[in-house]
Design a protein around this nucleic acid. Sequence first.
DNA 1: TTGAAAGCGGTACCAG
DNA 2: CTGGTACCGCTTTCAA
Lengths: 352, 352
Amino acid sequence: MQRKATALDVAKRAGVSRSAVSLVLNGRGEGNVAKESQDRIRQAAAELNYSPNAIALSLRNQRTRVIGIVCDDVVVSPFDGNIIGGADEVARSRGFVTVVMDTAFDAGRDADAVKTLLDRQVDGLIHVTVGLKPFDVPPGMLNVPAVLANCYDNAPAPALPHVIPDEVTGGREASQHLLGLGHRDIAYLAGSDESPASPLRIQGYRDAIAAAGVAIREDRIQMVGWDIETGFHAAMKLLDGVPPAERPTAILCANDRLAVGVVLAASRLGLVVPRDLSVMGYDDEYRVANTMVPALTTMALPLREMGATAMTRLLDAVENPDGGRRRLEPTETMVPCRLVVRDSTGPVPGSR
Amino acid sequence: MQRKATALDVAKRAGVSRSAVSLVLNGRGEGNVAKESQDRIRQAAAELNYSPNAIALSLRNQRTRVIGIVCDDVVVSPFDGNIIGGADEVARSRGFVTVVMDTAFDAGRDADAVKTLLDRQVDGLIHVTVGLKPFDVPPGMLNVPAVLANCYDNAPAPALPHVIPDEVTGGREASQHLLGLGHRDIAYLAGSDESPASPLRIQGYRDAIAAAGVAIREDRIQMVGWDIETGFHAAMKLLDGVPPAERPTAILCANDRLAVGVVLAASRLGLVVPRDLSVMGYDDEYRVANTMVPALTTMALPLREMGATAMTRLLDAVENPDGGRRRLEPTETMVPCRLVVRDSTGPVPGSR
DNA sequence: TTGAAAGCGGTACCAG
DNA sequence: CTGGTACCGCTTTCAA
């Protein structure tokens, strides 16, 4: 476990000074260092397997090329990890490293995490949440360029830009898919009031239904939460013992787990999806939507894109010649969701 | 976006030298610095909201208090994130920060990630995988203390310690749970050959069945993969059109998604779980096992414990007075799985 | 063309 | 008890 070689080691081995090593290895050797010194330096560096100490570089340059990512439970939860994946990919491609700190849903730890990251001199910050939600920006976060992903500044006068999914359009296009298949009685299991995504998707649903000239039945919109279990019970209520003519022909769900519950209920009742009932999810959850039986038609959240967009915006600011110390404009960027058609939706029964 | 205050700023404001600031703020003021200077220093520090620059500290101390975590797809996948969660919690409680680098299943990037982390002078490394698997340790990883979590050194002469789940015992105790409910014909949907966990769990299954004095039927052990869909089809084959007396009374699955597929198949066939058929999962996947209808009995993987154990072992070495530069013994630590009994398993049919 | 020296921010030693 | 100074590893300026 030997210590790493330093520039001084390389210099000694090549018989030159540290400065020469620095110049050559940073491509500024030409015209400053004799050609044969250059060769000796490069060779010595290779032999010693030299690469510069990033800590010393950071101190010297007053830039760490580290972006801090604070998230509420993204690493641990099965959702939304791809936001970080998308952000990380962009960072890596531009020579940055990300440090992720998860607060495990303890909002009190946001400020601590930001402080830790700031003490480590990160060049920028991104805050990511599991699920769209308002976010109380901790004060320290305004000291470096920062962007919010999947959340938005909760203050009366927002200070930070954010990147979020276009939920209204998502809800509308999901509904339009079902309307296009001939469905006119579409129930919507809408998640819960706590998520700001819920009213937005409902808005999209209403827009689509109304635009199709269909009357909106308020009792078809139900806030039932987000789990398999609650989807199951809601579907049972909608379907069990109800005459076919009075049943919805399609159930749109605010996430894929609800859709799993609905399919479970349908099969318990002997209904075949999509022949007797179309079921549609939301999120395109990895290894759930695509492997469900039947595979779920769903509205995919643009997770990687959101992360990538947020990181791109941030790095553009950080790498700006002004020194990356300017705060970003508090703009809103909406990223479109993506319709994924699979096997759980089909023509309305009796439409042939 | 003002720059952070430095020790010099504090010193000036308090009218003392940088050294005094350093002593006082590190609790070594007593007996070295006049009481009233101490007060002035502390006050100045508070007013300027001073906290030391961790980069400078790292350079000075030759210690970063950063642990690098390299993983193959843990952040992005819905599985095993809790390994990192458990590791991170321990690190945080001991004043360390973790930097996670995800290689997105590209083994070629392991070495790069390690190099990047080493350039940043991490004090130690942990490699985490999604799912138990052998791991080719990149050379650089031996330059600092390192531990493997959920994977093990693939070399003939292992160089690194690892922390893995006790899969044999897990398989055995899962089977014993079903045997204890009176089941004698238990099918096992065993995942796939690619995972080293599969044969281990099968071993546990065999041990338990044999110990109960029941003959092992090889055709009851089936490698069917890991998805909802494949569980569904396997269950249909086992149950559809088969006379009740020839059906297994319980199906043990190598993960919870398979179990979801089995339940789906059962309900399509009009079988009620667990009345007509017991179904058991493995993993205790978050928001799947506990919210399934019925909620799944399962064998929980000790994800957080594994992460915590790996990190504890690593930090014990890093914080060792020898300077934390010693390589760890290549030991094996097995963490027990945990039986979680819910509603998908019950007494064998007709046992009352 | 080269090397010496300053400085990034902090700690720790040592002389006063 | 206090302040000056060297050093961690690197880059950059400046003088030789």
